[in-house]
C-alpha cells in the first residue's frame, strides 16, 4: 500500500511546488516589510490569527472535518503560556512550547471523542466540548475568571532576544509563523497528507485500502490542535494577557470565517482571510456589535455566492494551486 489515490504528474507537481514557493517568498517579504506601513501590534495580532486559521484549515480543508471548537485550543494555550510565563516565570520559548503541548494534550482527549461522529455531529461535538472548556476556564481559579491573566511578562527568547522590544517581538512572531506555515505545508504534501485527502474524498474506500482512518483523523486533529495552541500561546505573549474571549465559541466561529473568506482548502487562503477579518474588526471596533453583524453577513455572502474564497477564486482564475 505505497501510493494513495492518484497523484498528479511529476511535472505538474513541480510547477505547483514552484508557484507555492514563489508565493511563500512573496508572503514572507511582504510580512517582513509590513511594519513600515502598518502598526506592528495589529500585524502581530493578525499573524497569530493567520496561524490559528491555518491550523483550523488543516483539519477542514484537508481532512474535511469542520471543527466548531478550535477556540478551546487557542484559548487554553493562551492561558497556559500566560500562567507559565507569569506565575512560574519560565522563559518565553518554554512557555510557548509547554502551552502548545498542553493544547495538543487537550486535542488528544477531545479528538478521540469527537472523531467518533462525522459531519455535522462532529461540528456539534467539538462545539460542545469547547463550551465545556469555556466553563472550566470561567470557574478555574488560575484563569482569574472574568479578569483573565493580565500583565504577562514577555521576557527574553532563548535568553537573547528581548521581547519587550517591539520589533524584536515582531520578528520572533513572524519567525514562529513562517516555520509553522512551512510545517503545515510539509504535512499537506507528505504521504501522511495524501492519506488524509484520501479519507476526505472517500473514507470507506480509504479504510478498505487498509488505512486506519480514525488514527489518521486523530493525528490530524492533534496536529491542528497543537498549531492552534501555538497561535494562542504566542498571542498571549504579544497581547500580554489571556482572557475568556480566546476560549469563547465566537473565537471558534472566527476560525471558520477566516478560512471561508480566504479560501477553504487553499494554503494561503487562511492567511489572507485572517488579515481581512482582523482588519475589519479593528476598523469597526468602535461601532460595537456592528462587527458581529458584518461577520454574519460575510458568512452568508461567502456561503451563497463566494464559496471559493479570495485565494480560491484567484487560484481558480489563474489555474494555479495556492
Amino acid at each position: 500500500m505505497a501510493a494513495v489515490a492518484h497523484s498528479p504528474s511529476a511535472a505538474r507537481d513541480a510547477s505547483h511546488r514552484r508557484d507555492e514557493m514563489i508565493a511563500f517568498a512573496i508572503m514572507a517579504i511582504l510580512l517582513a516589510i509590513a511594519p513600515l506601513f502598518a502598526y506592528p501590534v495589529f500585524l502581530m495580532q493578525a499573524i497569530c490569527f493567520a496561524l490559528y486559521a491555518c491550523a483550523f484549515n488543516l483539519l477542514l480543508g484537508y481532512v474535511g472535518l469542520l471543527s466548531f471548537g478550535h477556540a478551546m485550543f487557542m484559548g487554553s494555550a493562551s492561558y497556559f503560556s500566560a500562567h507559565i510565563a507569569k506565575v512560574w516565570g519560565w522563559p518565553p520559548e518554554l512557555a510557548i512550547i509547554a502551552a502548545t503541548l498542553g493544547a495538543a494534550a487537550i486535542g488528544v482527549v477531545t479528538g478521540a471523542l469527537s472523531i467518533r461522529r462525522q459531519g455535522i455531529y462532529f461540528a456539534m461535538v467539538t462545539l460542545a466540548l469547547s463550551q465545556m472548556i469555556y466553563f472550566f476556564c470561567l470557574q478555574a481559579p488560575f484563569t482569574h475568571g472574568e479578569d483573565g491573566i493580565q500583565g504577562v511578562p514577555q521576557g527574553r527568547m532563548f535568553g537573547l532576544f528581548d521581547l519587550s522590544h517591539q520589533m524584536t517581538l515582531y520578528f520572533v512572531v513572524l519567525g514562529i509563523f513562517l516555520l509553522a506555515f512551512l510545517f503545515i505545508h510539509r504535512i499537506i504534501n507528505s504521504p501522511f497528507g495524501d492519506v488524509l485527502k484520501a479519507i476526505r474524498e472517500n473514507e470507506p474506500r480509504a479504510i478498505s485500502l487498509g488505512y486506519k482512518a480514525d488514527q489518521y483523523k486523530l493525528a490530524a486533529f492533534v496536529l491542528s490542535a497543537a498549531l492552534a495552541g501555538l497561535a494562542g500561546a504566542t498571542k498571549a505573549l504579544v497581547s500580554q494577557n489571556a482572557s475568556l474571549t480566546d476560549v469563547h465559541w465566537s473565537m471558534s466561529g472566527e476560525a471558520v470565517l477566516m478560512v471561508l473568506v480566504g479560501g477553504l482548502g487553499t494554503i494561503f487562503g487562511p492567511v489572507v482571510g485572517a488579515f481581512v477579518i482582523i482588519a475589519m474588526q479593528n476598523y469597526l471596533a468602535s461601532y460595537g456589535q456592528l462587527v458581529t453583524i458584518m461577520q454574519g453577513l460575510i458568512f452568508v455572502v461567502c456561503v451563497l455566492v463566494f464559496r471559493r474564497g479570495i485565494v480560491g477564486e484567484i487560484a481558480h482564475r489563474f489555474n494555479k494551486s495556492l
Binding site: G288, L290, T292, I293, F299, V300, V303
Partner: peptide
C-alpha cells in the same frame, strides 16, 4: 450549517446593537 451560523450572528448582532 455555516449559513445558519451567519444568520444567527446577524440576528443576534442586530438585537445586541
Amino acid at each position: 450549517l455555516l449559513l445558519t451560523f451567519g444568520v444567527a450572528l446577524i440576528v443576534q448582532g442586530v438585537f445586541q446593537y
